[in-house]
Structures are given as structure tokens and as C-alpha cells.
Nucleic acid binder design. Structure first.
Length: 639
RNA sequence: GCCCCCUUAGCUCAGUCGGCAGAGCACAGCCAUGGUAAGGCUGGUGUCGUCGGUUCGAUUCCGACAGGGGGCUCCA
């Protein structure tokens, strides 16, 4: 069961000789570390198989990753892998496993290493790259994991003569791999740099047993089942008609309804929090984005301009901030007006590259719940703190509960503004973020070109983390646009501008909630909250009366008439994840009751008095305390 | 933008080794009035993503384009 050992705190091969007095622990194949080793060794076998099948192939890097591994190759004559090749490679890998070739560790000097990999340019580059660096730097580089230490290199060789540069450790022999499956091929740039050659990457998954592999594949299917793109079709929420274009969604009646409820609640909360609601057009003359700097910095992310009479260029807006700035600047402002909080559900358009568009989470046209707060420098810290509290509070109302914060600091290279300003703004965010009682993770260099930001990362029901709200402190745009206010001493001062979006984009947040809830929106967000099912046609009148009573009670209710059998209609209601199905038959008409089917319950409650049913449903509808469905159990759609 | 894959009925998919296509669900009509996860019968449905090429003939082979999926890079 052992794959490697830990000797004096360091992972080593099982074949490593021991000295007296050393502490030894065994790493088993199903432990996280053991799986890591299995995956790493499987990657080696993958490279060996590819080199067998494509003599002269160059192999680059092949690390273990979450759930599996990958390996990057450059095939002779610039050839590419296709899906059919995966089967061939996998079969060859199985032969190598059957041959049970030992992994033999060898140590070499740098020069020997270079000689060994003379015909492997990527390996040679790794060796040269690390050998040329100071030891401290080398240790930081991921290349160190590939087997290069400052003094020499380590390799692993097996009986077929395949040698790979590697730090190890590895399983003792190829027969000790677990169960694996090659998943897909992809292109990947050498060293992640799009200006360098694109290599052919093969992804695989590997586990300690057939069963663990099967469970992983099953988990993948479960995740697919709650994919927002799939649920969007199944629940008739939205679509992406080809005729409109890539990354441009239309929301259908039910999706539009959910969206409107989301937005309405947000509006109400923003009103209570002292925001003013503004609107701005979708297009503007080029000058506005020249002043803001967007055309200088991000023109390639914008849709190309429309030329109007006289050569005037108009752009679709990728952001709302310059418009809000013009609202601020429409007349002279006093310190008495600050902080001024301008909010808009603003439609913006960004020219996302064709390969990155993805469902509702990466689109070319979206609605931002965008606000800009203009305040004094003295107000800045307090404003950020109350903003963070507001944001987290609101996100919790939508059912997200598990957060951490991320502070993104000044990026390298293209930025505007001086170090002092950056430092002041960053510090304000750091202090506010630190006071929230949440983990604060540093993201060095991750800020926008004009401002540092703090973002709220939320974990959903199946453990994925989404970047949602962002708050940016901007000292640049107020300067570019010459914003001022008149202070108590009658001096003109420059306000600070805080950009913030809470959902990020309504579309994306919709997708996050849809997946978080696996399509079963909590009652307050559900497009249809209750459906009345008369058992027979002769209950139609009472059923219509009941539906009317539900509507009168403020519930989104509808009637599903008895033109189909009850079982059919119950099934449909469950698949559509309607929170309440109210069945009305002879007994109910006689007694003034309903058969109440509560979403998530095993069986119906018969004979519930109508008044009681309405009271329960309205209470549920008013509640935002919900617990989302955990992973799995989507069959039946009832969850 | 780059690499691989995909595109057949509203949806999910089968199929044609090149001779103008099928299933289930959905939809429509009729029957059935059924107390909790698919009642029965009948019926219609397709420019086989688009445009070119090869061919006597293309949904099938080739190319380009569009849209989608998985990655890479990017994400103000």
C-alpha cells in the first residue's frame, strides 16, 4: 500500500537507503500525498508512451495537479494530438504498466544533465534556467520540482531507457500505478507565455483504485448536471441564440423573473443604504474613454467604434464609471453632498476573445450592479468598512455564506499614479478588509491599472470559489476628470472615488446562484412558488379559487389543469423544482384543505387546511434563511 | 487569439463504408377524469450549422466561416 516514504520530513523513494536514527513514515497511495505521487508517476509513464509512439517527440513538463496530471509535448514536424490518439497512448501506457518497469533514481552534474537531454530542448532549458540562478531563486522556481537543484540534477530512468528530469519521489515501478484515464488534449503555451511555442498538453486523471476513479468520474457527471448552462435550458431560463452572437444572452420569462427579483431586492437594499439611482446610455463619443484612459489601456477589449457623420467615433461602453463621473461633475459639489453614492444597473459590452466566452459567467454583454462613491479622503476608510459590511450582508441574503477576501495590489508595468497614492489606497483597503473577521489573502500585482482592489470570494454549495464583489479605491479618475468639491474652508479639494460591484455582473451572479442551488432557487427567488393541481376537471373551479387566493396572498402561483393525470403533473412540478405543489381533490373540497407537496419532502402532507398552507408558504417566501442543496441528489430534480 | 473536439427534429441522441434520415422525450388532435415521479391512440416536424470544393450524386469526403465544448493566454 505504500508508494513513498517520508524520511526526516522529506519525501523519498521506498528504495532510498536509510541511516540510523532517521525518522521514517510511510505514505500510502490513498493519502493526498500518495495520490500526488501516483499522479506524478503516471505523468512519467504518459511521457514514455508518447515518446514510444512518436519517436523524436520533445517532452516538457508534466506535474501532478488536482485530481490528476498533465504533460506537455512538442511532437515531431509540429504534429498535434487528436482525441483518437488518447486511446493509443492509454493502451501503450497499460503495456508499460504490465511490464512493471522500475523507476530508478540517478544523480548527475549540471553538465551531465545537459548532455543527457541534449536532444530535449525544453529539459535543457529547465536545467540551464535553474543552474544559472542563485540557489534562493532556484528554490522558488517551479522548475526545482522538475529535478534541478543548484548543484546538479536528478533523473528517473526505467528499464525501457526512458529518462525524465525529475525531483521525485516516484512509486517503485510502473506496475504500482493506480487507475488512470486520459481525459483530453489541449494547447498550452510553453511556460504559460503566449509569445512562446504552443505545446500539446494531455490531461489525465489518476486514482489509487478503480473505485476511486469511478467515483471521481461520477462526481464530474454530478457537477455537469448542475452546470448553469444545462439548467438554463432545462428550466427554460435563458438562451444564447446564434443569431445574436457569441456571449450575448436572452433571458426567457422565468429567468427574467428570477433576475428581476434579484435586482429588485438589491435596489431596495441600496435605497436603504443611501444610494442614488442614475442611468446612462450604452454608447458614447470616443473622447470620454480617451479622458478615462480606457482607450489607451484597454482598447482591444472594447467593441470597435461606430463612425458617425463627420467622422465622429462612438463606442459601446465597457464600463459605467466615466458616465457617473460626468453626473458628479454636472455642477459644483460641496463637502455637504459627500459621500455621494451613484448606483446603476448598467449594461456594458466587452469584446472578450472568442476562446474565453463561457455561458453566463464570461459574456460580451452584461449588466453590472455598478456604483461609484465619491467621498473625501477622510471619509474613505469608514466608507470602505461600511461598504464591506453591506456587501457581505447582502450576499448572505442571497444564500452565500462562506467568504474570504482578497487584496489585489499595484500591478507591475502599466499603471497610472504615484507610489504614495497607491500605498494610501491599498492601506485603506487592507485596514477595512482586516476588520471583517474573514481571511484576507494577498494577491500581489493583481490590481487594475488605476486602482488596488479588495474582492469578496464566495464558496458555493459544492466547494467552488467565485470572485464576486469588488471594491476599488481610485485616486486616478478623479484627477483625470478634474473632479472637485468645495470643503469647509472654502478650498477646492479632490474627492476619492470608490468603484464597487456587488454581483459583479447580474448574469454571472445569476449563474453562480443557479449552480449553488442546483436550480432549486429558494422560495423567495423561485419563478413559480406554488402550483395548484386539481385532481379532476370537476375540481377546476375550486382550484381556480385557490390559485386566486394564493396570488392575493402575494405568492407567485399558477394552475396546472387536469388535462393530464395527476402523476404526470406532479412529476413535471418536481422536475421544474417548484417549491410547493398543492393538490386539490374531493376530500379537500369537502374539508377546505389541500394536499401539500413541499419541495424536498419525501411524501405529500394530506389534509392541510388552506389557511395553514398559505401561512406557511408566505412565511417561507418572506424568508431569506435558506440552505442550498449539497452536491449530489439531483436525480428527481426535487432537491 | 492559439490547440483539440463537436454541430442531424424544440431537447437528448442514433444513422448513412457517398444514393435527399430515425428513436425517445417534447409538441398538436382525439380518447381517458386519473389522490402524488411518465395513461392510450393518431399526427406533424428537419435546407442533416452556413458557404464553397470534389463527385453522376454530398447530411456523409475536403476547405473556409459561424456557433458550442474542453484547455492555454486574457479578464479594466
Amino acid at each position: 500500500d505504500a508508494v513513498v516514504a517520508v524520511v526526516d520530513g522529506r519525501e523519498v523513494d521506498l528504495a532510498t537507503p536509510l541511516s540510523e536514527g532517521q525518522s521514517v513514515a510511510i505514505v500510502t497511495r490513498q493519502s493526498p500525498e500518495g495520490r500526488h505521487v501516483l499522479r506524478h508517476s503516471t505523468a512519467h509513464v504518459l511521457a514514455q508512451a508518447v515518446c514510444d509512439l512518436w519517436p523524436g517527440a520533445h517532452y516538457a513538463i508534466g506535474p501532478p495537479i488536482t485530481d490528476g496530471f498533465y504533460y506537455d509535448f512538442a511532437l515531431p514536424e509540429g504534429r498535434h494530438f487528436s482525441d483518437e490518439d488518447l486511446d493509443r497512448i492509454e493502451n501503450r501506457m497499460k503495456e508499460i504498466v504490465a511490464e512493471n518497469q522500475p523507476f530508478v533514481r540517478e544523480e548527475h552534474s549540471i553538465d551531465e544533465g545537459l548532455a543527457l537531454f541534449a536532444d530535449q530542448p525544453y529539459k535543457a532549458e529547465i536545467i540551464r534556467g535553474v543552474a544559472g540562478s542563485a540557489p534562493a531563486v532556484a528554490a522558488e522556481m517551479t522548475d526545482a520540482a522538475e529535478g534541478v537543484e543548484s548543484g546538479g540534477v536528478s533523473t528517473y530512468r526505467n528499464t525501457a531507457g526512458f529518462v525524465d528530469l525529475c525531483r521525485g519521489p516516484h512509486v517503485p515501478s510502473t506496475g504500482r500505478l493506480g487507475s488512470f484515464k486520459l481525459m483530453r488534449v489541449a494547447g498550452a503555451y510553453w511556460r504559460g507565455d503566449e509569445h512562446r511555442p504552443q505545446l500539446q498538453r494531455i490531461y489525465g486523471t489518476a486514482w489509487e483504485s478503480e473505485q476511486a476513479l469511478a467515483e471521481h468520474l461520477h462526481r464530474m457527471e454530478e457537477a455537469e448536471r448542475r452546470d448553469h448552462r444545462r439548467l438554463g435550458v432545462e428550466l427554460d431560463l435563458f438562451s444564447f441564440p446564434d443569431e445574436i452572437g457569441s456571449g450575448l444572452a436572452v433571458f426567457h420569462p422565468k429567468g427574467g423573473l428570477v433576475r428581476r427579483i434579484m435586482e429588485d431586492y438589491s435596489r431596495r437594499r441600496h435605497e436603504e443604504a443611501g444610494y442614488s439611482f442614475v442611468t446612462s446610455p450604452h454608447i458614447t463619443k470616443a473622447g470620454l474613454f480617451e479622458t478615462s484612459g480606457h482607450l489607451e489601456w484597454y482598447a482591444e477589449g472594447m467593441f470597435p467604434p461606430m463612425e458617425l457623420d463627420g467622422g465622429q467615433r462612438y463606442y459601446l461602453k465597457p464600463m459605467n464609471c466615466p458616465f457617473h463621473i460626468l453626473i458628479y461633475r454636472s455642477h459644483q459639489r460641496s463637502y455637504r453632498e459627500l459621500p455621494m453614492r451613484l448606483f446603476e444597473f448598467g449594461n456594458v459590452y466587452r469584446y472578450e476573445k472568442s476562446g474565453v466566452v463561457h455561458g453566463l459567467t464570461r459574456v460580451r454583454g452584461m449588466t453590472q450592479d455598478d456604483a461609484h462613491i465619491f467621498c473625501t479622503r477622510e471619509q474613505m476608510a469608514g466608507e470602505i468598512a461600511s461598504l464591506l459590511t453591506f456587501v457581505l450582508d447582502l450576499l448572505r441574503d442571497y444564500g452565500l455564506a462562506d467568504f474570504h477576501l482578497e487584496l489585489s495590489t499595484k500591478p507591475e508595468g502599466k499603471v497610472v499614479g504615484g507610489d504614495e497614492e497607491w500605498e494610501e489606497a491599498t492601506e485603506a483597503l487592507r485596514v477595512a478588509g482586516g476588520s471583517m473577521g474573514l481571511e484576507l489573502v494577498l494577491d500581489p500585482g493583481g490590481g487594475a491599472f488605476y486602482a488596488p482592489k479588495i474582492s469578496v470570494q464566495a464558496r458555493d454549495a459544492i466547494g467552488r470559489t467565485w470572485q464576486l464583489s469588488t471594491i476599488q479605491v481610485d485616486l486616478q479618475l478623479p484627477q483625470r476628470f478634474g473632479l472637485e468639491y468645495v470643503a469647509t474652508d472654502n478650498a477646492r479639494r479632490r474627492p476619492v472615488m470608490i468603484h464597487r460591484a456587488l454581483f459583479g455582473s447580474v448574469e454571472r451572479f445569476f449563474a453562480v446562484l443557479l449552480e449553488h442551488y442546483a436550480g432549486a432557487f429558494p422560495t423567495w427567488l423561485a419563478p413559480v412558488q406554488a402550483r395548484v393541481l386539481p385532481v379532476r376537471d370537476d375540481h377546476a373551479e375550486q382550484a381556480a379559487g385557490l390559485a386566486a387566493a394564493l396570488l392575493a396572498a402575494g405568492l407567485r402561483a399558477e394552475l396546472d389543469p387536469a388535462s393530464e393525470p395527476l402523476g404526470t403533473r406532479v412529476r413535471r412540478g418536481r422536475l421544474e423544482k417548484v417549491p410547493y405543489l398543492l393538490v386539490l381533490g374531493d376530500d379537500d373540497v369537502a374539508a377546505g384543505t389541500v394536499g401539500l407537496n413541499v419541495r424536498g419532502a419525501e411524501s405529500p402532507e394530506r389534509g392541510v387546511p388552506v389557511e395553514e398552507a398559505i401561512a406557511r408558504m408566505t412565511a417561507d417566501s418572506a424568508s431569506r434563511a435558506v440552505s442550498p442543496v449539497a452536491a449530489g441528489e439531483l436525480r428527481g430534480g426535487w432537491a
